[in-house]
């Protein structure tokens, strides 16, 4: 493993684009994404402790809490943020099912739901297991699970 001290210039692949950034070795991906250079503020800090999931992004199509990842760890990985969702069915499903109120946790839940819908297996148990990673304080969770289930079953059929 290469040893890192001080600011590092590197290239990240975010939403299909190669982006040049300068990051500190101790910098979380959440911090880098939200910083002035990238301005991808869709991922939200809610606890910066891996508990709430508001900062969830996809790394190689899998949901990851960006507050728990160092940016230097994901050089060369394919990163997708909520800004990278282009008319994904999950977005309209969240609107149709009233799956958000304040909207702060929404980006994170969207990323989990979107990633799950791309998985071959998304039965009820898996759906609950995946969505348990995130917290919503406004809705009843039924709206969110309904939205995700709708997208998953649509893809199946």
């Amino acid at each position: 493993m290469r040893s890192l001290t001080g600011p590092q210039a590197m290239t990240l692949t975010i939403n299909g684009d190669a982006r040049q950034v300068v990051v500190y070795p101790g910098e979380t991906l959440l911090y880098t994404l939200r910083g002035d250079a990238l301005g991808l503020t869709g991922a939200k800090p809610g606890c910066e402790n891996g508990d709430c999931g508001a900062c969830t992004v996809l790394i190689e199509q899998m949901p990851v809490k960006s507050c728990m990842v160092l940016t230097v760890e994901v050089e060369g990985s394919d990163i997708t943020t909520v800004e990278g969702l282009q008319h994904a069915p999950i977005q309209q499903a969240f609107i149709d099912h009233g799956a958000f109120q304040c909207g702060y946790c929404t980006s994170g839940f969207l990323m989990v739901g979107h990633a799950l819908s791309q998985q071959p297996d998304h039965d009820q148990g898996r759906l609950v297991e995946w969505l348990r990673s995130n917290i919503c304080r406004c809705t009843s969770y039924q709206e969110i699970t309904d939205a995700v289930r709708a997208v998953c079953s649509e893809i199946e059929s």
């Binding site: 991808l40 503020t41 869709g42 991922a43 939200k44 943020t81 909520v82 800004e83 969702l85 977005q91 309209q92 969240f94 609107i95 958000f100 909207g103 702060y104 929404t106 980006s107 969207l110």
Partner: peptide
């Protein structure tokens, strides 16, 4: 809110 464009 579903595109990450909602600003807080």
């Amino acid at each position: 809110k579903v595109t990450g464009r909602a600003r807080y």
